[in-house]
Design a protein around this nucleic acid. Sequence first.
DNA 1: GGATCCGTTGTAGCT
DNA 2: AAGCTACAACGGATC
Length: 520
Amino acid sequence: MWFRNVLRLHDNPLLNKTCSSEKIESLVPLYIMEDEWFNLDSITISANRKKFLYESLLNFNKNFRIKYGVDILIFHGNSSKIINSITENLDNEFKWLLCDYCPEPDKRHTINKIKENLVNLEINLKVIPAVNTILDVEKVIQSNNFSNPKSSKDIEKIFAEKYEHSPHGYIIGDSLLPPSNLNIDKKKMEVLIHESTISEFYISEDILKNKLMELESKSKITDSYFVGGEDEALERFERKISQSPNFVNSFSKPSTISTNKDDNPLEPTTTGLSPYLSNGCISARMLWNECLKINFNSTHTLPPESLHGQLMFREMFYLLSRSVVNWDNDIENSNCKPIQWGEYDELKIKAWESGLTGFPYIDAMMRQLDATGWMHHLGRHAVSCFFTRGQLWQNWKYGRNVFEKKLIDSDWALNNGNWLWLAGVAPFSMPYYRIYNPCPDSKSSLNVETTNANFIRHWIPELSHFPSKYIFEPHLAPSTIQHDSKCVIGKDYPFPIVDRKQTRKRNLSLFKESNKQLSN
DNA sequence: GGATCCGTTGTAGCT
DNA sequence: AAGCTACAACGGATC
């Protein structure tokens, strides 16, 4: 039983499948951590992301032990090599490999490779669908009348075909309770831990705990706010969903504000469940069902703005990520219109990534991303628009890479989908001329008020004494105010790296020009 | 087959 | 301060 991206006991179809299958007499629970994740020095994954996964894995292991009396077998290394070694070391004594379906190309590639090897050994591979999604991705995209969804209406049609509709939302079926016991083969686990050719790749709970401590001391993750794991996920679920019917029933994205009114600038105004969803700590199906239950008792918002709407967009991107070839690329991608982006500009990209563009709203968001691994939905829109068609005119792929590395809710399907959308290259509704103002004033939908000013003061300490009136464009403040605020622009905080109005105008016409050439 | 509608999130400038 | 208007004008679905 190989857990790939499912680190929870609740609504985990793997556990129930295993339990209900009569063919399986005993099992060995397994997790494999790729070395990219295990190596603390790897630079493609941020310390925050690693921390979140380690915590999630430790918590899952603990819950598994409490429930079933044994730790999960954890190895690090290449998945297919580890699986091969296990078959060899157990003398082909196991007959089934069960795992959760993962739609990412590299993971599908891995599973195909493993399948080839298993077939020769007469071992069955069972990939359980829809573990971290509501829809069975493969089944939906292979159905006869499937075409790529492009809007909330399109994805709603897909739901409508499959599920019964109630006035309060689609009925997708109950989520699962974990089985009360599992017949685990401890002897085989002992063999793999102590007497196998992969013993050296075994990660005990103590090793993982030390690894987490080392990570925390090495990279001073002082601002990390989200703690990984099913326990935290369920606590947050309880607090923000189950016990907050008004929040659920009135939830209306995009009209959530990017900064919090209460004292904690780190607590999101949205659910904050995204990292738990993408790491498999909470079930999307359970979240859907809880919202449905709450919606039944009251009037409520509807898709696409409601929480059900958010979950539907998530499903839409999962489908597209599987059906659109080269989903993560800017060429040979049917969902990416070719735009002549500017030359790779290292200075601008570095300034953007490190929060030194001279645009406080953008910089605050990017510093929050770096420090915590999380950013509000609207902030993600603002900084990605700024990076691409708004101001910097850089290829969305470079921005995407930064998000992928740093976001604790990093998710291949969703991250690429949102960048395609915001860059204006996807065939979704996104008039390219709607460019977010990187210096949002009180008229902007990015909604400023004093909360955003406080948000900026929190993440950009250089500006902590700056008056709200000038804080979004501090270089426009009279020099007396700059001196009084102990922040002289050009010395203590950078001048804007671009003229926002001039770049906006130029980029609009460049985009228009690209469109013209494409339609010819 | 041409017109119209619609799409989860706009900005700037003036009164 | 709030409200109005000009700007720019995609592209598929539906009528």
